[in-house]
Computed example of a mutant assay.
Amino acid sequence: MTRSVVADAGRIVVKVGSALVTNDGRGLDHARLARWAEEIAALSRLGKEVVLVSSGAIAEGVKRLGWSKRPHALNELQAAAAVGQMGLVEAYERGFKAHGLQTAQVLLTHADLANRERYLNARTTLRTLLGFKVIPIINENDTVTTDEIKVGDNDTLGALVANLIEADVLVILTDQRGLYTADPRKHPDARFVDEAVAGDPSLEAMAGGAGTGIGTGGMLTKILAAKRAARSGAHTVIASGREDKVLERLAAGEAIGSQLLAKKEPLAARRQWLADHLQVRGSLVLDAGAVRALSVQGKSLLPIGVVEVRGEFRRGEVVGCIDSNGQDIARGLVNYGSEEARRILRKPSSEIAAILGYQDEPELIHRDNLALL
């Protein structure tokens, strides 16, 4: 790797982890937050548009509420997030103001990204803010999310935001140098990965679990985030936030950390939105012929290729398409609800009207409404 992809990027999503904005989980480290504001301001002066995804709200809330440790109960985590978000945004606002930059707080949930209208609204808002040279500071809206509907970690959120605004690069800053072939703390012979292709299955095998008890994301979440960001053509850089002026040096082209390149053509915006669904209403189990028709031939999904319908869903909702081994194949907008789908599975499309008494579409999912995974 001779040149960082950040150098030529016009639009960048920067994700900063908990370990880089807190005092070992004991509230915010204001000096570090000021540092990130300074570095992002330097990128802004270069003409780059930057969106910041920052952790730290819950840790700050725990400190402000006088708790000795991070709670486990959902309602207490939500309370900590609500209290801590005030301090996080206040600190960032102060830091960016010192460099003449305005900031905006944007709290997102999975529902904002799963609903087509809200997805487009969020996209428009972020693009408008960037057009006004405002730095959006994004976090998951932990105050209202539950385990069933949450994005789960800010690495994934960073990738979703990269797709949302069609960023050129996702920079994930962590307390590790980057990606190794194995955990270097346990395997001294582990080799550093300076460059690879995002989505390469071997990368997931290399990744271990979370390195600290402060945040929720380990190296695996970063690998998967890079894979997700690559769907919209965004490259990913995983680098140490302990490096001096890391963002400015990356912008200057210096090779720092692990660079995971997006090789595939970006998905069309509609398919990208479909692929970004972290939760789906149900799933359709496909036979081998249907899997081949979707993944190799690019065809629509017909009822005859479905062997099982799982879950409950309505017409127009997003469902998963899986093979007999449970492997994700695609996601798409279904033309029939689960009850109707069960009645017409394994049947040719010519029999839909006779079975249901009507026919909306000959396909269960049209190819234009399918996103391969």
Rank of each mutant, 00 (worst) to 15 (best):
R127Q: 15
L364A: 12
V13D: 08
G95T: 01
E166M: 08
F132L: 15
I138E: 09
G326D: 00
L333Q: 09
T22E: 13
L267H: 04
V16L: 12
S338F: 06
G17A: 07
L364V: 11
A162M: 09
L274Y: 01
L302P: 13
I329K: 08
G241I: 03
D142S: 02
R346E: 00
E363M: 10
G17Q: 10
V14G: 11
L157V: 03
L372G: 13
A290K: 02
G209N: 15
V50C: 11
Y358S: 15
D200F: 05
A19R: 13
G25L: 13
L107P: 07
A37M: 02
L65P: 09
E254L: 00
A251E: 00
E148L: 00
E265V: 13
E351M: 04
A330M: 06
E117C: 02
G208T: 10
Y119K: 00
L113P: 06
R292H: 03
A205F: 10
V13H: 12
V307P: 05
V14H: 10
L126I: 08
G208P: 14
H30F: 11
D8R: 09
V62F: 05
L364H: 05
E38L: 04
Q176R: 14
V197K: 14
P136N: 11
N335P: 13
K69Y: 05
R310C: 09
G298V: 05
P184M: 00
Y358N: 14
V319Y: 00
G320K: 07
A31I: 12
Q272T: 09
D175W: 15
W273E: 03
D29W: 08
Q85G: 11
E351D: 03
H366V: 13
V197I: 12
A269Q: 10
L157E: 04
Q102F: 06
D368K: 12
Q85I: 09
L179Y: 04
G84N: 09
H277C: 00
I12M: 13
L43W: 02
I238A: 11
I329R: 08
Y92I: 05
R185N: 13
D194L: 01
V144G: 03
N369Y: 12
E39N: 03
F96E: 03
Q359C: 15
A91D: 14
S4R: 03
H110D: 02
P136F: 14
L278E: 01
N23D: 15
A167V: 10
E166V: 08
R3D: 06
E90C: 07
F96K: 03
R292L: 05
G95N: 02
V296T: 12
I256G: 11
L33G: 15
D287N: 04
C321W: 01
G17M: 12
L364E: 08
E195Y: 02
L333T: 11
V89M: 15
S283T: 02
L274E: 00
D183N: 15
G316F: 08
R123W: 05
E312F: 07
G87W: 08
S283H: 04
T216Q: 08
S258L: 05
V307K: 08
D200I: 04
L52K: 11
A269D: 14
K133Q: 03
A162I: 12
E148N: 01
E166P: 05
R64W: 04
G213T: 12
R94V: 02
T216M: 10
T216L: 15
Y336S: 15
Q102K: 10
F132S: 12
F132M: 15
